[in-house]
């Protein structure tokens, strides 16, 4: 009897229509697609992406070559060499980050006493050749110059939670 009942039920296609109803309902629903190059998913100001070296507003680079970032870097991705400049200030002559070694932990930014090395929220960058994976001081400074306003905005957004 139960079997007969089940057989009769299956002839009504009840569960099939239930499924069709769901797909038809979703046909008119709001779509969740994000058009990637034009749109991004919302991202925290604390997002740890591409690195940058910042300058003071007078154009002087912030980095004082204290090498705290080099020491704290758990992946040994940062290499720094420093020299004394004419006016007595200690400045880096080499600041390399191996982007393949970097684990994007953000310790370098936390260690920096002068907020020089920072991680921006830029997540989509790429290297065309294997040897261009090491980005040097000039590149880092140019990222800093290019995104200074953006970095400033991110850091001030995040500062109240620090």
């Amino acid at each position: 009897m139960l079997k007969l009942k089940r057989l009769f039920k299956s002839f009504l296609f009840k569960d099939l229509f239930k499924g069709l109803n769901i797909t038809l309902y979703n046909l008119f629903n709001k779509k969740v697609t994000i058009q990637y190059p034009e749109e991004h998913i919302p991202r925290s100001p604390r997002f740890r992406g591409l690195h940058a070296l910042r300058r003071y507003s007078n154009g002087e680079e912030r980095c004082i070559a204290c090498k705290l970032c080099e020491v704290i870097c758990p992946a040994l991705a940062i290499t720094i060499e420093s020299e004394q400049r004419q006016d007595g200030a200690r400045k880096t002559i080499k600041y390399d980050i191996d982007m393949f070694k970097c684990i994007y932990c953000g310790y370098c930014e936390e260690a920096c006493p002068v907020d020089s090395i920072v991680q921006t929220d830029i997540s989509d960058f790429y290297f065309e050749k294997n040897d261009s994976r090491v980005i040097n001081k000039e590149q880092l400074l140019s990222y800093g110059d290019k995104y200074e306003l953006h970095i400033d905005k991110l850091k001030s957004e995040d500062s109240k939670y620090k």
Partner: peptide, 10 residues
Amino acid sequence: KVIGYMQLRI
């Protein structure tokens, strides 16, 4: 298009 819309894609 239709299958995309039904799967909430575009």
